[in-house]
Amino acid sequence: MQLKTKKKAAVSLNKKTFWQRCCEQKVLILMSVPLVLLKILFAYVPLVGWSMAFQNYKPAKGLFDQQWVGLDKFKFLFSDNVFLHDIRNTLAMSVINLVLGFVTAIILAILLNELKNMFFKRSIQTISYMPHFLSWIIVVGIVQNVLSTDSGIVNDLLLRFGIINSPVNFLGEPKYFWGIVGAANVWKEVGWNTIIYLASMSSIDPSLYEAAAVDGAGRFSKMIHVTLPAIKGTIVILLIMNIGHILDAGFEVQYLLGSGPVQDVSETIDIFVLKYGMQMNDYSLGTAAGIFKSVISIILVFSANWLSGKLGEERLI
């Protein structure tokens, strides 16, 4: 008991008041607080605008003089076929990108890890990382070029091998669209996505491979039984992190590639927000769609974080 009071006294002696500490640290405060206020302005103040989703927002009036309509905008959204299709498209393209992205990056990383010639390995890595740095606009330009009906290499090869008889307009057919977006994503990101896997493979104990060799394991079974288990933790963490972004199917590639005939399968939630909110000036409806996406994303991120903790992996937040 006595000890406790003594400790308390010592603490209060050391503990200066809040203002004293602020005065002492005024330089630190000057170095950080103005920038934090800027961040609050651009990241948190716009949240006030979420009230537009519950109003019939008219730009002429102030934000708080609007007519309140409750959940009408949300009710309209979920009875709107276009929006429901957009949710479907977003989820479909996300899942395709997620699965394709993971599988291809893991396979490539494992194969790169098998290359023994360092110069060859480095060159392949340099080349395969490169498309990551090209903007989506450039990539879309390249995709249009590769798939074009008059001079595209894909049609050229398919015709040459007799798989098709006349050029296919890939970008004009809804049934190919999701696949094209998935393939473009793989082309752009597969090399880049191997970086983290390669980093975690570099810490594998070489004696594991030797032990496997003694047991008579070939190259292939070493990849399956040594390399793959060693990066399992990394795969799980990345997978969980990506699930939080399942509604971020991307926006640029769909916006740039999605022309009239494929609109029904190309439009994502982000494009819906852009179209209704910005181009048709229905701020309320656009904001409502944006809120739907943000709220689902936050729920997913926090559940993923919780799941990550449950599985004994490091928490993300």
Partner: peptide
């Protein structure tokens, strides 16, 4: 003094996104 608060303010911006239209306005 503000270390923890500042970290929290920044980290939360990675997950909270007000969306296109409020940001535009």
């Amino acid at each position: 003094v503000f270390g923890k608060a500042i970290t929290l303010i920044y980290v939360l911006t990675m997950y909270i996104n007000a969306g296109l239209i409020p940001g535009y306005l």
